[in-house]
Design a protein around this nucleic acid. Structure first.
Length: 314
DNA sequence: AATTTCACG
DNA sequence: ACGTACGTGAAATTA
């Protein structure tokens, strides 16, 4: 029996969560506080991730817990430098799906974003053939999984596993998705075709990811490369956008001689140690720079939060 | 040294 | 018949 509801299974999972958080974060991070600065300093790799993302090592500050209550207690430990400062977090909302909308030019998806319609609700409406106001929370949750699948390179098997439904049902849902967003289907096919021809996929700024298995006779290798051909331009263009924004924000902060500092980047998020008196100005400028870093055929949205610690800044 | 597990986007 | 969601890093376990 694979029932997570059984007491022992729940206890094991609970124990694993606890041990993970203790061993990886609670026992380690305090030992990494610099004597000189009183802070934890990470290093960013700029040439490790195949898509052009940064990665963070020694320690990795891009995987600080947030999803569980106990994990959130750890995130709360990240605080500003002093009483005159607050943590400010600015993140892109649905950046990868927005890029998918812009690249594919899918009218329904673009309209949803440009009119402020919740994208997962929009997807649920199309896939389950109900009105936008008839989408239930369960339908929206499933649509969210589907949308992630689209970005990652979907298969009926993969979707069936994650939704815990029969494979045939998953295949049906994928069909409905492509019927509802036909330009997305065309875009995905185009990504793969281009990669077959060139031997690489590229981002909006021209960063290439070479895909040596794109024409492989080994089906598993080839299909993996095909998913990369779809995902790399999206994930990589999001990385391009955030990096452009970071450069411009850094320049602006120098020009303005701000006391605030940009202290961390987490794929679609920037974190600031922000002086209380600068927050109004800083947030407006950061928001503007992020939204306009790379103009696309879709409106970019950001979420900005401020708080006494990193958790509260969300 | 390679694999597994699990933390994040 | 096969094997299956994208990108990472760290700690523990296996070999």
């Amino acid at each position: 029996m694979l029932r997570v509801e059984h007491e022992i299974a729940r206890k094991i999972l609970d124990y694993r969560e606890l041990i993970k958080l203790k061993n990886t974060y609670v026992d380690v991070l305090p030992t990494l506080i610099s004597k000189r600065t009183g802070r934890i300093h990470t290093s960013f790799n700029q040439a490790v991730a195949a898509t052009g993302r940064l990665s963070s090592v020694n320690p990795n500050l891009q995987n600080i817990p947030i999803r569980t209550p106990r994990g959130q207690e750890i995130r709360k430990a990240f605080v500003p430098r002093g009483p005159e400062f607050l943590i400010m977090s600015a993140d892109y909302s649905q950046i990868e799906l927005r890029i998918m909308a812009a690249f594919s030019g899918d009218k329904t998806m673009l309209d949803a974003f440009n009119n402020g319609v919740d994208i997962h609700t929009q997807t649920a409406s199309k896939v389950f053939h109900v009105g936008l106001d008839e989408v239930t929370s369960d339908m929206r949750r499933k649509a969210k999984t589907i949308n992630f699948g689209i970005i990652y390179g979907i298969s009926s098997f993969g979707l069936s596993q994650r939704l815990k439904i029969p494979r045939k049902e998953a295949a049906q849902i994928i069909e409905e998705y492509f019927a509802g967003f036909p330009a997305v289907k065309d875009y995905i096919d185009q990504c793969i075709e281009k990669a077959r021809g060139f031997g690489y996929a590229e981002t909006i700024l021209g960063r290439r990811r070479y895909l040596r298995d794109i024409n492989s006779r080994n089906q598993t290798d080839r299909m993996f490369a095909e998913r990369n051909a779809v995902n790399a331009p999206i994930q990589g263009s999001a990385a391009d956008m955030l990096k452009i924004a970071m450069i411009r924000i850094h320049e602006f902060m120098l020009q303005e001689r701000l006391k605030s500092k940009m202290i961390l980047t987490v794929h679609d998020e920037l974190v600031f140690d922000a002086h209380r008196d600068e927050i109004e100005f800083l947030s407006v400028r950061v928001d503007d720079i992020m939204k306009n870093a790379i103009p696309m055929a879709v409106r970019m949205e950001t979420g900005i939060g401020v708080g006494e610690n990193w958790l509260l800044a969300h």
